[in-house]
């Protein structure tokens, strides 16, 4: 439970950064933190107390493996979601740099041409 709480706190930190910070880069970092909080949460779902890594080793019976290994599926999901967040973050940073070139600032409150 404490570990879930940890993921939650991490999420809240990201949230705070996204909502409250003005700097584009800090907003992006907030997004990254939130994503990682979710990833941590996903990992924790598959966690089993005193379980082993879901790797089949030589001489290990399948039944033993099933009984001791942790759920590998969330880990596969996490690696996929990391790939996705990598793409998103790369795009975010690229656009942020471009925005800086146009506006000369990283302050999101000054990048407000579109409104209404």
């Amino acid at each position: 439970m404490l570990t879930y709480l940890l993921a939650f706190i991490l999420f809240a930190v990201g949230l705070y950064s996204v909502i409250n910070k003005r700097n584009l880069i800090k907003i992006i970092m907030g997004i990254i933190i939130m994503e990682h909080a979710v990833n941590a949460f996903l990992i924790l779902i598959g966690y089993r107390l005193s379980g082993e890594a879901p790797i089949l080793e030589e001489g290990m019976a399948i039944s033993e493996f099933v009984n001791t290994a942790m759920d590998p599926l969330p880990q596969a999901l996490v690696i996929t979601s990391i790939v996705i967040s990598l793409g998103v973050v790369a795009l975010m940073v690229a656009i942020a740099v471009r925005l800086y070139q146009h506006y000369g600032t990283f302050d999101i409150t000054e990048i407000r041409k579109l409104r209404g």
């Binding site: 990598l86 790369a90 940073v93 690229a94 740099v97 070139q101």
Partner: peptide, 15 residues
Amino acid sequence: LFVVFAYLALFRAIE
């Protein structure tokens, strides 16, 4: 990944 890195480095170079 290298493309992403290189493009961002390119921005840096332009700046």
